[in-house]
């Protein structure tokens, strides 16, 4: 029976020329035992096929994308991109800072201009001491710069910076002691990590937030 069964499998494989298939089919039809065997096999395969495709769980794509390894680039490029290049944070677009004219300041200059909590004054708000922090951001060609962070619930229009001479944008934030993640927003669409922050934190979506630490 082994040789005959091969015909069945050949048919199930769907291979062979149309003439060969027709011939095999009639052979199978003619023999009741073969026919039954064929039906049984075909039925079991149909069952499996009808079990069908299994849909992937919800958020599958989002989870995969959030777990992708960081893009490997030359380390010079990596540093620049990591800290200095802003991105339009929309899913299908990416853009460099050149479009918004943010100039990359030299490393030497940058290292001396930390956004450390410069205690220009302290005050009390509802019994807690508050420290005024001045943030500076060098962007001579930007038309508008705002800052959004943990301190303002990431509101993109609550804290607008003012442009001073020399292309430096600045603002003052009254903050209670704590740790605050934040980013600048240039011209309403490009999010930029503060190159002058002392430390940084991943925001959970693969972008780098700058971090401000205010001590008691």
């Amino acid at each position: 029976m082994i040789k005959d069964k091969d015909i069945l499998h050949k048919l199930l494989d769907g291979e062979g020329s149309p003439e060969e298939r027709k011939k095999s089919e009639s052979q199978v039809q003619a023999d009741p035992a073969l026919r039954k065997e064929y039906e049984d096999l075909a039925r079991s395969l149909r069952t499996v096929k009808e079990g069908g495709r299994v849909p992937a769980p919800a958020f599958f794509t989002a989870e995969v994308m959030s777990k992708l390894p960081p893009r490997r680039v030359s380390y010079g490029e990596r540093v620049r991109e990591f800290f200095f290049r802003g991105r339009i944070l929309r899913w299908n677009l990416a853009s460099g800072l050149a479009a918004v004219g943010v100039v990359i300041i030299t490393a030497a200059l940058m290292l001396r201009l930390y956004n450390k909590p410069v205690e220009t004054s302290s005050a009390h708000l509802q019994g807690e001491s508050v420290i005024i922090v001045r943030l500076n951001f060098y962007a001579p060609q930007a038309a508008r710069v705002a800052v959004a962070g943990d301190f303002n619930k990431w509101n993109v229009s609550a804290n607008i910076l003012s442009k001073k001479n020399g292309g430096i944008w600045t603002t003052e934030l009254p903050l209670k002691p704590g740790v605050y993640a934040y980013m600048f927003i240039v011209d309403g669409k490009t999010w930029v990590t503060d190159p002058r922050a002392e430390t940084y934190r991943d925001d959970g979506f693969g972008y780098n937030n700058s971090v401000l630490r205010i001590k008691t």
Binding site: R53, V54, P55, A56, P57, F60, T61, V64, M65, L68, R71, V73, W91, N92, L93, A94
Partner: peptide, 20 residues
Amino acid sequence: SGDRDKYAVLVDRYKTMVYT
């Protein structure tokens, strides 16, 4: 060439196939 976001298109396209 670095456009990581485009990979989402491929993931979306093939997720059912791979998951199955």
